[in-house]
Amino acid sequence: MTDMSYAPTRTQSPTTKLVLRFILYILLGVFALFYLMPLFVMITTSLKSLDEIRTGDLVSLPREVTFDAWRTAWSGACTGIQCEGMRPYFLNSLLIAIPAVLISTIIGALNGYVVAQWKFKGANIFFALLLFGCFIPFQVVLLPMAIVLGKLGISGTIPGLIFVHVIYGLGFTTLFFRNYYVSIPSELTKAAKVDGAGFFRIFWSIFLPLSLPIIVVSVIWQFTQIWNDFLFGVSFSQAGTQPVTVALNNIVNSTTGVKEYNVDMAAAIIAALPTLLVYVVAGKYFIRGLTAGSVKG
């Protein structure tokens, strides 16, 4: 009987618990609303006509839903003298981001594989330098990079931008893959060596099939970085090769006369859509990949 009374003294009664829970949810709801507010304003504004924006309330729902602003943003808005909307720049961004993501991921995977599993003399210094590269601010590399691009004859071109993004992303992708691959027992590599496999064979047959989670991490990270990049985009592009972020800036800043908020909002959403999409589709792999433990043999 005495044992029965032996319970932690600070247990809360069910009602207290319920009240606390309730407060917690209210708070979470408020924060969620707070963060969703801008998105809400953007979407509603983009669906309103200019008249309604001028006369109406910022946070009210559109009285009359119209997709005119979206159409203009996509194919008619002016970025300086051209008025082709976001479309060509969206395409540019895809042409830059997709190859840059793929190349930096592949090279990062190979780098990580070498640093983690084929320890060579100076491997640690090599890795430390790569890591250091992650933390060099963009601004510092602008000038040297411009010179390099000029020397290579690819300044102002899409391949030039791909090159820049690959170089800048390598530090991160190498870090991701290296940290993932060090958790794979080195005896796996040894066994494959005894089995007669060489460097690429081991990578291809043993490491790559294990790498899906970290590939997803690398792809999401790189895609977001490259797609959202503005500084490199504005520095190393010329008319015709500008990415979507630069175009957005131009649309928003170059309207003469009336400011078309609805078009600006639609253009902003268009520019942000792919990264949002990537998170929605692959977000859960992202978390899983970042926390993935060692591989069981």
Binding site: P185, E187, L188, K190, A191, A192, S205, I206, P209, L210, V295, K296, G297
Partner: peptide, 9 residues
């Protein structure tokens, strides 16, 4: 090998 080192995939 001491840990078997079977190829996991």
């Amino acid at each position: 090998f001491q840990s078997y080192a079977l190829y996991p995939t």
